[in-house]
Write a protein that binds this DNA or RNA. Sequence first.
DNA 1: TATTTATTCACCCTATTAGGGTGATTGTTT
DNA 2: AAACAATCACCCTAATAGGGTGAATAAATA
Lengths: 208, 208
Amino acid sequence: MERAIQIVVIEDDEIIREGYALLIGRTEGYRVVNAYASFDEAAKTIADDYPDVILLDIELPGTNGIQAIPKLKKLLPHAYILILTVYESEKTIFEALASGASGYLTKNTPASKIVESIREVKDGGGPMSVNIARMVIRSFRKNQESPLSKRETQILEQVAEGKSRSQIARDLFIDLETVRSHIKNIYLKLDVNSRADAIKAAKENKLI
Amino acid sequence: MERAIQIVVIEDDEIIREGYALLIGRTEGYRVVNAYASFDEAAKTIADDYPDVILLDIELPGTNGIQAIPKLKKLLPHAYILILTVYESEKTIFEALASGASGYLTKNTPASKIVESIREVKDGGGPMSVNIARMVIRSFRKNQESPLSKRETQILEQVAEGKSRSQIARDLFIDLETVRSHIKNIYLKLDVNSRADAIKAAKENKLI
DNA sequence: TATTTATTCACCCTATTAGGGTGATTGTTT
DNA sequence: AAACAATCACCCTAATAGGGTGAATAAATA
């Protein structure tokens, strides 16, 4: 048999922390080598635990979970980080994933699913709760009923890429004045009067 | 008991199509009301099937799966679309999700998982294969070893929001010349000499 | 059919902007 | 000691953005 997957839990609530340790530890092939109540406490000795997977809570005293991710990455470049939290805000999730978390599960996830997810993370997968996946999917979905026409949307996308009017005109094989005209109409429809404001409004309304 | 979930399958390979119909239809609470070999064929009568969930293949003759999504949405605004395909390219996935697909599964997904996913989609969730989730997560992850400093990254982000130098200076409470200096250094490091090129390079390297 | 909308283009104007060059100061990290 | 990060200064000019006003043609829609 292979060596058991070494797991470290970082979670401030003692009940939950011990609960995880117990639940996961009793599964064959999974070994909880240590459990900490905060990142600041974990930082001292976690390198000696040689964890394969770190279960990390977001709401931690001192250094919070998001801040802890890059620090953990530095301490243990090869460990996978699995976020396990009650937070479901879009911002938090994306911050965690952008910082290098390998997965994101909510605390209502059943123990069997958590164990399965640890295996998936270890094998290079990226598990997500149903709610998280839904959020990610929604974040990718553009608003269906856009006030902008196809052409306007296309031009706004290029504006958001930092292109100048003349660049856009060249790329779309239309006149500079036409681009100008479209941008004016975009500003009218979005009730803005600058590139930055148009981009902001468009992102907020998922028009681009 | 509740009314069974009505499912329509659109898949050109007959073996796979009938396989899905059989596998899903034998599960209680799930009813495959129809199966089509192409969207163009389905378009004629699918509205009479009143499906709750549509299993959609990407590689279809004629109108492909991605193109079919908005058309299906128009025909059946309340149906959920679940992509079931071998394609795993990042672009394809995001196109599908952006077009309004509710979920994305790969064809190596076991039947039990597919059935479970249909239920999840119906209940408002968004299922994704492990591989897909991994891809989505990777797409959210920023490059860890960025050549840019924190400040430079921050300024580049604002440039990508379409802000002018003076706007950035105001927002960061620093001098206009400082912003200029940072942007010059960003251009140097990224080997570009325009906003548009800097944004492009930064996105390609996941620096922002 | 009538009317709106989309897409295209034109010319007026000016303050602002972007980008290149060159150099310097003050910390912080290595 | 040396490199990097972050800050600011002043030279320059071509290009850009944004405002105003107007118009032709085609496509979609009422």
